[in-house]
Simulated scan of single mutants.
Amino acid sequence: MPASQNTCFTPSSFLLTGILGLEAQHIWMGIPFCSLFVAAVLGNTTILWVVRAERSLHQPMFLFLAMLAVTDLVLSTSTVPRMLAVFWLSSREIGLDACLAQMFLVHCFATVESGIFVAMAFDRYVAICTPLRHSAVLPAAVVARMGLAALLRGALYISPLPLLLRWQLPSYWHRVIAHSYCEHIAVVALACGDRRPNDLYGMAIGFLVLILDSLAIAASYARIFSAVRGLAAPEARRKTAGTCTTHICTVLAFYVPIVLSSLTHRFGHNVPPPVHILLANVYLLVPPVLNPIVYAVRTRHLRETLLRRLC
């Protein structure tokens, strides 16, 4: 540790504060976080199990859902166990490399999840607007390549964030991260030197992913709803619209917390620190819990297959 807060130094580890301002409630706050984590792990592993075991579910929609489950498992397991160690064991110390690895996993797989939502919107567009060509346009090999493309895009976009911190900003004013995990903005705030490249790149990637992916999803659903209005039978319109509602709910559950968290971090200087941290935790825990529940409840084929397998 440095002797003075005005001295830059290169730490070997950081200290996580948890939820700043609510340290006295950490023990109790760990209970809902742990419950959500267990629900996320059970729900997503169940989705993976039933999709793998049931050949009738080897369709683009359910293959993308399996990819979403893997992504949600990585997002939750890379942060929540470390968070619970802070809440319950007061184990606040995290190594520098472990912190940068956690940062990479969180932001990379959040970007991957956004890409999978775009792929799922495209799948719904093909299935509804050109149903006779669905199997030809999206065979299993193409679905796998789309998932790989989402993964590579996430790794390519996010890799510069920890690398810039490791090489360009190796020194820090202090090592206390005012967060419950190694979030990029919270770590950059501690760094000595010119932080503008990190800030600008992080902001540019965040808005690029959110805006481009949101526009792609909106364009797909604009075409879908146009096609739905052209259906003659009301029952067919309801059934077709129902298949899209599930995806729209999960998309909103993912994007809304991310947008709110990003805006409060960047511009909400008067927002209390606990609100910042809780919003950042919401988009890591709520979508992994909601996604399997929403799809299991709203998708009849998946629900019936799951019940048959369990019973």
Results as ranks from 00 to 15, higher is better:
Met203Arg: 01
Ile177Trp: 10
Ser159Val: 04
Met203His: 03
Ser171Trp: 11
Ser171Lys: 13
Val187His: 04
Gln168Arg: 06
Arg175Ser: 14
Ala186Val: 03
Met203Asn: 07
Pro170His: 08
His184Ile: 13
Asp194Ile: 03
Asn198Gly: 10
Ser159Met: 13
Pro170Asn: 11
Trp167Asp: 02
Ile158Lys: 00
Ile158Asp: 04
Ala178Thr: 03
Cys192Gly: 08
Ser159Phe: 08
Ile158Ser: 00
His184Gly: 04
Gly193Lys: 08
Cys182Gly: 02
Val176Trp: 08
Asn198Trp: 00
Leu164Gly: 03
Leu169Gln: 12
Val188His: 04
Arg196Lys: 14
Arg166Thr: 04
Ser180Lys: 05
Val188Ala: 15
Tyr181Val: 04
Leu169Glu: 06
Pro162Val: 08
Val176Lys: 14
Pro162Leu: 11
His179Val: 04
His179Gln: 13
Ile177Ser: 05
Leu164Pro: 00
Ala178Cys: 12
Asp194Arg: 06
Ile185Leu: 13
Pro197Ala: 13
Asp194Val: 05
His179Tyr: 07
Arg195Phe: 09
Ser171Cys: 11
Ile185Gln: 07
Ser180Thr: 13
Ala191Cys: 15
Arg196Asn: 11
Arg195Trp: 09
Met203Ser: 14
Leu163Glu: 09
Ser171Val: 08
Trp173Pro: 00
Ala178Ser: 12
Asp199His: 02
Arg196Trp: 14
Arg195His: 10
Tyr172Thr: 02
Ser159Glu: 12
Arg166Ala: 14
Ile158Tyr: 00
His174Ala: 06
Gly193Arg: 07
